[in-house]
Write a protein that binds this DNA or RNA. Structure first.
Length: 479
RNA sequence: GUCCCCGUCGUCUAGCUCGGCCUAGGACACCGGCCUUUCACGUCGGUAACACGGGUUCAAAUCCCGUCGGGGACGCCA
């Protein structure tokens, strides 16, 4: 049997990193088994579904490198195009007496829930319309017809439903606990639990991989499968991702969308590696290529407990992947972040690569790298007054002038080696240590006391900007 | 409240299936040393956990029971 897995996001908002992790696991399991990975769009809620969020979801998945074998743009993979199929299935259940109309109003249901809560029972539907007679060829509700009833699934009350979960193990639900859920709303729209079952059935999904917040839905979905005369697929419920406060990760925990991480200068490999490693492991290994992830992925190696999202570890992984990227590729990634700030790059690709090379071990994200790069990119630098007070003192003027002259005469032959030689000559002349000369130069060239190695900085900056800045600093300390 | 799930360093985890190799390993973070022109990188070292209580056993992080704690679900949302 060929494995078929699916990911079924709702286009009602940004693609959330907690949510996309379930998709990643479904993808990895599918690929690991040389199966088919399907993307399906759960857009039954037409009110909240938007084209924008659909586009964002698709683009986020592509950015992460999660590619699907079946799905959009094929219209057959949108729930909104499958309504007739859901209606047909609902009519079948009605004919067979496995579903029934419910005429309760929202207010009645609400009162029912409150009552149950008072009596310390599970709030749920009490089945008051369950035994009312109805015509087996009853029309389905429709918004246009204004039919004021819903269709409920007649859930078996006897026995129990067993979920043999691939991650969690066996979970047993007493059928008496499961109330009759609505499968069709009064406006003629099928509900999630019903549409999902039909989709999983029709697309011949063999393994449903999703977050464990869906575990309580599973016995209900299994019952619907059986009522429809089909066997349910296998289920794998992944533990959820929590925020630092230990509750379900949500917007109030800060950046949670895939786009937000892309904009913050993260590399997709880092996010994928992090998400995969949260809740799954392969011995002591921390770094995984996509191929390794696919090779090693297995539900047996998935943990059962929820994990807290740790931004620091993601940062460390991102740093790792930035160092690992070939320089030219990293420079290409950096470019748009520079442009986004309205800065221009004063050199060609080779220059940009040299610049990036000096910064890549000092930045954990692309954004941070560009933050550090501003002294390379701007014509006018701002000198930190505290740094100036400490290093740009009158006695620095002479050596600074000397190094400026040296560098000016090197001119076009300037490189790390020739800069180093120039520094050594000046240090010898004034009997200085490298630190005594390097710090004032650093402040003059970068505006602060922290930067890449001073020889590299000068080599990247080039003779003319270097000399200009040195002389500006000399003028500054003389006034 | 009811049902379901979960419980190893602050965090992610290895070990738990088949009890002894665990004076519990790795990673992030943190602290300290080294390297050093600053900051980083790197490198070396350190602090830090089997939720608790009962069993079973010669022996339990590993098996059983209970307690406590955390999370999730209880919608004409998905």
């Amino acid at each position: 049997m060929t494995v078929r897995t699916r990911y079924a996001p709702s286009p009602t908002g940004a693609l959330h990193i907690g949510n996309v992790r379930s998709g990643l696991f479904a993808y990895l399991f599918g690929r690991h088994n040389h199966g088919t990975f399907i993307l399906r769009i759960d857009d039954t809620d037409r009110e909240r579904s938007t084209k924008e969020s659909l586009d964002e979801i698709l683009e986020s998945l592509k950015w992460l490198g999660i590619d699907w074998d079946e799905g959009p743009p094929d219209p057959g993979y949108f729930q909104s195009n499958r309504f007739e199929r859901y209606r047909e299935a609902a009519r079948q259940l009605l004919r067979e007496g496995k579903a029934y109309p419910c005429y309760c109003t929202a207010a009645e249901l609400d009162a029912m829930r409150k009552q149950a809560e008072r009596e310390h029972r599970k709030p749920g539907y009490d089945g008051r319309c369950r035994e009312k007679p109805f015509a087996p060829d009853l029309e389905l509700p429709a918004a246009s017809a204004g039919r004021n009833y819903t269709i409920r699934f007649r859930s078996p009350h006897e026995g129990e439903t067993v979920v043999d979960d691939l991650v969690k193990g066996r979970a047993v639900f007493d059928n008496a606990e499961l109330d009759d859920l609505i499968i069709f709303r009064s406006d003629g729209v099928p509900t999630y639990n019903f549409a999902t079952v039909l989709d999983d059935a029709d697309f011949r999904i063999t393994h449903v991989v999703r977050g464990d917040d869906h575990l309580p839905n599973t016995p209900r979905q299994m019952q619907i499968f059986r009522a429809l005369g089909m066997e349910p697929p296998a289920y794998a419920h992944m533990p959820m991702v929590m925020g630092p406060d230990g509750t379900k990760l949500s917007k109030r925990h800060g950046a949670t969308s895939v786009f937000a991480y892309r904009e913050a200068g993260y590399l997709p490999e880092a996010l994928v590696n992090y998400l995969a490693r949260l809740g799954w492991s392969h011995g002591d290994q921390e770094i995984f290529s996509r191929e390794e992830l696919i090779d090693y992925f297995d539900f047996d190696a998935c943990g059962k407990s929820a994990g807290i999202f740790n931004a620091e570890k993601l940062l460390w992984l991102n740093f790792h992947y930035m160092k690992e990227r070939p320089l030219a590729a990293l420079a290409r990634e950096v470019r748009p972040f520079i442009e986004k700030r309205g800065l221009t790059i004063p050199g060609d690709d080779a220059w940009l690569e040299k610049m990036v090379a000096t910064l890549r071990e000092r930045a954990k994200t692309l954004v941070e790298l560009v933050d550090f790069a501003s002294f390379y990119l701007k014509d006018e630098i701002e000198i930190d007054p505290k740094a100036a007070a400490k290093f740009l003192k009158p006695e620095a003027a002479e050596p600074l002038a000397a190094i400026a002259d040296e560098l000016e005469s090197i001119g076009g032959n300037l490189n790390e080696e020739s800069v180093k030689a120039a520094f050594e000559r000046v240090m010898a002349r004034y009997a200085m240590k490298l630190g005594q000369l390097a710090q004032p130069v650093r402040v003059a060239l970068t505006g602060g006391t922290v930067s890449p190695g001073i020889f590299e900085v000068i080599a990247v900056l080039g003779p003319s900007r270097t000399v200009t800045r040195l002389r500006a600093a000399i003028r500054r300390l003389q006034t």
